[in-house]
Simulated assay, not measured.
Amino acid sequence: MSNIVLISGSPSPNSKTASIAKWLQKELIERNHRADLIEVRELPAEDLLYANFKSSTIAHTHALIKAADAIIVLSPVYKGSYTGILKAFLDLLPEKIFAGKIVAPVLTGGTIAHLLSIEYAFKPIFSLLGAREILHGVFILDTNVQWNEKGDVFLAKEVEERIQHSLEDLLKATERKEFPTI
């Protein structure tokens, strides 16, 4: 059983990215893994805005991340990068907090042109935070995410297959021990 932390950088509770985060959390729990979800928009705005490193709420998120085997970071793409609220949260993380962790990026965007955000926006910050391994990641076009009449998210078949493949890669990577921690 792996301990996975999902970090959702969506500023909206009803966004496609937020729905995918909850869907992934449910998938992991159904596979008997621990899956904690940090919804950055739920953190105290003043703590994020004023970089309150002493906040007990922020300290709790740090404890979750430190205890995790792997991290899945999700964000919509705005202006070619992840959201500002996610940036504010990442700025509050201690240096090398991702040391020894597997990190998987998941981005949603309105155009395929945002695909490169994984390589040019997400991966450098994960590297700076000390990630042991950064997986390829999944980019999802907004048009491939829908809701059914119950409000449950459903993904285009091709997208669900890519996410399932990414989850498998993530879980296999958490089992490998040959990578040294940074």
Rank of each mutant, 00 (worst) to 15 (best):
E39Q: 08
G130P: 00
L170Y: 06
G80R: 12
E95T: 13
K22T: 07
I29Q: 14
L129Q: 09
R31C: 00
I65N: 02
L28S: 01
A68L: 12
S19M: 01
G9V: 09
G9Q: 08
R41E: 05
I140F: 01
K123P: 10
N144E: 04
L116W: 03
V103I: 10
I118H: 03
S81D: 00
N3G: 10
E30N: 11
V40F: 15
S117D: 00
L49A: 14
G84F: 12
R31L: 06
K157F: 02
E46H: 05
K96I: 03
K172S: 08
A131M: 12
K87W: 08
R176C: 05
A59P: 15
D47F: 02
A68W: 12
T61V: 13
L135K: 09
K66W: 01
H165T: 14
F139C: 07
A18H: 13
T61D: 11
G110E: 02
N52I: 13
K26R: 14
F179L: 09
Q25H: 11
N14D: 05
T108P: 05
V77S: 00
E175T: 06
P105L: 14
V138L: 02
V153N: 01
L128N: 13
L92H: 10
I134N: 09
I118G: 02
K87I: 04
A59V: 15
N144T: 03
T181V: 12
L43K: 15
I38S: 04
E160D: 09
W23S: 01
G137S: 08
K150D: 00
T174K: 08
T61K: 14
L128P: 01
P76R: 12
E30M: 06
A70G: 15
V103T: 14
E175I: 00
I102D: 04
K123L: 06
P94T: 14
Y82Q: 14
T17R: 09
Q25D: 05
T111K: 05
A104Y: 14
G130I: 05
G100F: 01
L129S: 04
L170G: 06
L74D: 07
S15C: 04
V138A: 02
V106Q: 08
L116C: 04
A63K: 15
L74Q: 08
N14Q: 04
T174C: 07
Q146L: 00
E168S: 07
I134Y: 02
Y120F: 03
Y82I: 11
N148Y: 03
S12M: 14
I118D: 05
N52Q: 15
V103M: 08
T57V: 11
K96V: 04
H62T: 02
L128V: 15
L128S: 11
V5Y: 07
V77R: 02
L170P: 12
L171M: 13
P124K: 01
V145G: 06
D152P: 00
F98H: 05
I102S: 07
R41I: 12
A99P: 07
L86T: 01
I85F: 03
L135I: 05
D69Q: 02
W23R: 13
A131R: 12
S12Y: 13
S2I: 10
I85M: 13
L6P: 14
E161H: 09
K172A: 10
